[in-house]
Design a protein around this nucleic acid. Structure first.
Lengths: 217, 217
DNA sequence: CACGAAACGGAGAAAATCTCTCCGTATATC
DNA sequence: GATATACGGAGAGATTTTCTCCGTTTCGTG
């Protein structure tokens, strides 16, 4: 993690491989999965893993940061590619469900401070919220999304949905998650009889309420 | 766990206390929480805990079984007390969100077999599904709930919702969970424009698909 | 009230597990 | 072809946790 800035090609490849594998292993085995298991599944030695991530926490942080960046990329892409804000919203939410970030919030909690200190994370989170806020505002303007739900409602719902149902066979869990997401999208839609929800939970409302605390997807 | 069947008063009290504490501790600290921590927080010695639950797994199973029974009780009570099926449904779902079963499915997974073998659990699960099915059928008949969502959709959604957002301050996490639940309830409502969801996920459909596997809330 | 049985508390043993290091070898880059 | 960079993997070391044991206390009953 020093000067060179420019990793050797195989090093960069391995780093990515390790993060991807770690995400999958954590999703499958839960927060107790070991670093050695991650290394084995990635097909690298423990030594390699530990050169990229000085300790276990760094690996967790790396996975969280990567996940957050993926969510952000998803949001940005959805906004850019979908002409209708509603489509961008549902596209983003569906995409998130595929990220397998299952237990990361549990693993991240003990390192919340360290996590928040990583500059990339703070910024990615802020940008993600801004992007979502923009999508949501557009959807409000479009008249497709109920006005009493805000960007944080979207993010909160997604955070709940991306978790797995580990006692279920994966394909069934997947179906159930997708169906639940569809129900949720219907609930987010702007229709006349939706019972009111109170003031929308926007990025601003969240900031006011948190005063600097953490939100890690 | 032998003959006496009739526990001494303090023993029964402690057993319940331990389960309740364990649920809270697991919800707060995640799956890694130790038995000693549970004992300490419950104000009993480790020895006491281990007389009630011969090993850690048994404790987890005990908590899961208890949680399932509470869900069942909730469903039965909701059905009995609410004249309208829709109200019973939302009452059940709201009640579940308060159970703090956060990480139990993660903890339970390694013991899925053992879990399924506990007679109380198999039966509670079956009864729960039946009860939900009845509520859902009534709600369909009532015209309040969309027909392409079934009892398993309800249970799946609840299973996703009861998880916490541990990196968030508890009260905010609570709000977010409640708001998401409301969105979901709106999505479950029977209204003309809801995009179709495919055939409803009923208890039967689940059984056909699982062929004996596990579903532990 | 007193007696027997059942349950409790807590110190600590024993084991199991995981993280992380070290160094000879292999591979990329120039 | 030379050099720096990265890799693999065996294993040490330390940390942690589970779970037991037994003297003490509490409950239930005659």
């Amino acid at each position: 993690m020093r000067a060179p800035e420019r990793l050797r090609a195989d090093a960069r490849r391995n780093r990515e491989l390790i993060i991807d594998t770690a995400r999958a292993v954590f999703a499958e085995q839960g927060p107790g999965a070991t670093t050695d298991e991650v290394a084995k599944r990635a097909g690298v030695g423990p030594g390699t893993l530990y050169r990229h991530f000085p300790d276990r926490d760094s690996l967790v942080i790396g996975v969280v940061a990567d996940g957050l960046e993926r969510m952000l990329a998803l949001a940005v892409a959805a906004r850019a590619e979908e002409p209708a804000a509603w489509d961008a919203l549902s596209c983003f939410m569906r995409g998130c469900a595929g990220l397998r970030l299952d237990v990361l919030s549990w693993m991240a909690r003990p390192q919340a401070d360290r996590l928040a200190a990583v500059p990339g994370i703070r910024q990615a989170r802020a940008t993600l919220l801004d992007t979502l806020d923009a999508i949501v505002r557009d959807a409000h303007a479009e008249g497709t999304m109920r006005r009493d739900a805000g960007a944080v409602d979207v993010l909160g719902a997604v955070s709940l949905l991306i978790r797995g149902l580990p006692t279920l066979p994966p394909d069934l869990a997947q179906d159930l998650r997708e169906r639940t997401l569809e129900l949720l999208l219907t609930g987010l839609r702007n229709h006349p009889w939706a019972p009111p929800l109170g003031p929308p939970m926007t990025a601003e409302a969240l900031a006011a309420r948190l005063g600097g605390e953490d939100f890690s997807g």
